[in-house]
């Protein structure tokens, strides 16, 4: 039985990345704990450098500069995220759309090759890449031998190993936090949709509240919150495919 925080002490670090604050937690007192934390932040910075639409040198920005009919090679980060986005787009009858309506069929990713099919296409991976970045940071921690910990990118978070992480939800209207859940060995993403929320696409969303999705992988927790919000269906069949559960609250 895992009894949350009392199990051991933790080293926690936070840095501004992905347009929000990213927190990494690893067991305190282990050898090279600071090096582990640095590796996790480096993994996130790497994803950000590839996929940010704000960075002129990112693969995403270079894709936007292509002429229709052209294609370019992309690395593992872009290929993984874009193929997941493509799959979710097809499985949701187009509800999940990283082109945000600019040209849903205006791009295609085959393996590590990204094709531009329409001059109007603009990709915004804000609804899926943050979760992927969290998965990448967790993978970096695990491959460096870290047996438990967590990564939280402004509400998209994943916890692994022998820790049950207590989660709180921020009150977007008046400040302060409320207990939300305890999470063990999985990912949770919560998005707030409604006036004043950070999501500029909220006008498209059927749900005007919080949507939380728990899934084994943070990429899917992140992306599926958007699908549940847009479809208004917390039992959308795509949840099952990724071992996910959703709540609106």
């Amino acid at each position: 039985m895992i009894t949350s925080a009392a199990y051991r002490h933790w080293t926690r670090r936070a840095r501004p990345l992905l347009g929000t604050l990213v927190e990494v937690g690893v067991p305190a007192g282990i050898t090279d704990g600071e090096a582990l934390v640095r590796a996790a932040f480096a993994a996130i910075a790497d994803v950000q450098a590839c996929l940010s639409r704000f960075d002129a040198d990112s693969e995403l920005s270079r894709f936007h500069a292509l002429a229709p009919g052209q294609s370019m090679p992309v690395g593992m980060h872009a290929a993984t995220v874009l193929q997941a986005a493509q799959q979710l787009h097809d499985a949701s009858d187009g509800l999940f759309d990283v082109s945000l309506g600019s040209a849903p069929r205006g791009w295609r990713c085959d393996g590590h090759r990204l094709h531009k099919l329409d001059a109007a296409v603009r990709l915004d991976l804000g609804g899926i890449a943050k979760g992927y970045a969290v998965d990448s940071a967790v993978a970096a921690l695990q491959s460096a031998g870290c047996d438990s910990g967590w990564v939280n990118a402004g509400g998209d978070l994943r916890v692994f190993g022998e820790v049950a992480l207590p989660l709180s939800l921020r009150d977007e209207a008046a400040g302060g936090v409320r207990p939300l859940a305890t999470l063990h060995d999985g990912a949770l993403a919560t998005s707030h949709f409604g006036a004043g929320s950070r999501s500029h696409a909220h006008a498209r969303h059927a749900v005007r509240a919080h949507v939380s999705v728990a899934a084994p992988q943070c990429l899917w927790a992140d992306a599926l919150t958007k699908l549940v919000a847009i479809s208004g269906d917390p039992h959308h069949p795509e949840l099952d495919r990724h071992g996910a559960r959703a709540w609106t609250h």
Partner: peptide, 21 residues
């Protein structure tokens, strides 16, 4: 103390930190 609670749903922007840097 040793509470390791994390916030979810924090639609927190780090714009202020970025400007401060």
């Amino acid at each position: 103390g040793d509470d390791i609670a994390n916030i979810s749903g924090a639609t927190l922007s780090c714009t202020h930190v970025t400007d401060g840097v």
